[in-house]
Amino acid sequence: MNRTVVITGASAGIGRASARLFAEQGDNVVLLARGRAGLDAAAAEVEELGGRALAVPTDVADHRQVEAAADAAEEAFGPIDVWVNVAFTSVFAPFSEIAPEDFDRVTAVSYLGFVNGTRAALSRMRPRDRGAVVQVGSALGARSIPLQSAYCGAKHAVNGFTEAVRTELMHDRSGVRITVVQMPAVNTPQFSWVRSRLSHDPQPVPPIYQPEVAARAVVFAAANPGRKQYYVGASTVATILGNKVAAGLLDRYLARTGYDSQQTAEVADSGRPDNLWQPVDDAAGTDHGAHGGFDDRSAPRSYQTLAARHPLPAAAALVGAVAAFGAVGQAVRRHRR
């Protein structure tokens, strides 16, 4: 029997790429996002790839809209089997330059949106004693960087929230599972529509991966949700483990390099639209797809992620350890120069 999968943030980026993969498996895919153009295009792709689609315009910051979307999903396709929380927004700026209402908005979408989605999923899954919730996390939920205080704070909060919920499910001996997929820098459209106060256009910090790399990990986690978390990309492993062994060094390193590494050479257009409060694709009627503007610099696969799926986890641990200590050693050498 085909599963019913709900994906928030499904109109672009990781959510969009994940919807395609679930569709290829013949799943029913319920697509939640604010922008109608992206939702309609995503729904068409799901149908073309062999799945059934339902597009529900939803602002995940509003728990009432999320609950209504969950009702619509089950009315259309039956019980929800998998819920994937992806939706987020952000502001690229020093904390002192982020307006309070903008910070609140990032938190409402990028943290409380996950809370709202998880609540809607669990309220339906727990009585049936089955189902999986997949949280799309980030290496920045373990190691914060400058210019992204609102986003980093939200991702840290998602990790803490999810740990608490996981232990409650374990206490109740529930058959429902919840897991986090920790992501690296991904080539998504966010960098072209995120609100930015920077002097130059924002960019992901290399190494950059294509959204399909992230999506494959999401689909794998949905089928294997028993693990607490999955790491995508050697850079994610290096960041998280490196922060455990050399946090102070990374503070100094990021203070020196974190501003320039997140900006391109292109001077920012102060009048460009952003999606903090309104979806960009609705304003222009344009579908932005899964990919951002960094295709030529993005890796189509991650050998660490392939190793992490292997039945023998030692392979993944070895790759991760080598990457982590290599990154720390490189940071130390740069710091000494």
Rank of each mutant, 00 (worst) to 15 (best):
P313L: 06
L169H: 05
A150P: 02
A61R: 13
A308T: 12
P202G: 12
S144Q: 02
E74M: 09
A246G: 07
R337H: 13
R336Q: 07
G15H: 09
S123N: 12
L54S: 03
A321P: 04
N28A: 10
H63G: 06
T286G: 02
P146T: 01
E168S: 02
E48V: 03
P206M: 03
L147F: 11
R195W: 02
G113D: 08
R34V: 01
S235A: 08
K228A: 15
A73T: 11
F95I: 14
V181Y: 05
T236C: 12
S96W: 09
A157L: 04
Y230W: 10
A23Q: 10
L169I: 06
A108F: 06
T58G: 07
F294K: 03
G15I: 05
R336I: 01
W83F: 13
V232M: 02
L306D: 05
Q203G: 03
D102P: 06
V46R: 03
E67H: 09
A317D: 13
L241K: 04
I7P: 13
F77E: 08
P211K: 00
A93W: 03
P79L: 00
R336P: 01
R337G: 15
G9L: 09
Q278C: 01
H288W: 14
T179H: 08
T188L: 08
V56W: 06
A268W: 01
A43L: 15
Q135T: 00
A321W: 15
A150Y: 07
A315F: 15
I240S: 01
D59G: 03
P313A: 10
G285H: 10
D201H: 01
Y259T: 11
V91I: 15
F191Q: 09
R34H: 00
A308I: 05
R256M: 01
V180T: 11
S302P: 00
A284I: 11
A43T: 14
L21A: 05
A307Y: 03
A10R: 02
I98G: 07
R34T: 00
V158I: 15
S174G: 08
Q278Y: 08
T58H: 08
D282V: 08
R197E: 14
A69S: 06
P225F: 06
A17S: 12
A121S: 05
P311C: 03
E97W: 05
I98M: 08
E75H: 11
V181Q: 06
R3V: 10
Q135R: 01
M1F: 10
F22A: 11
D59Y: 04
A317Q: 13
P313T: 13
H63P: 15
V186E: 10
V322T: 11
A72C: 08
L122R: 07
A76F: 06
Q278S: 09
F325I: 04
H63W: 10
R16C: 08
A290T: 04
A324D: 04
A255G: 12
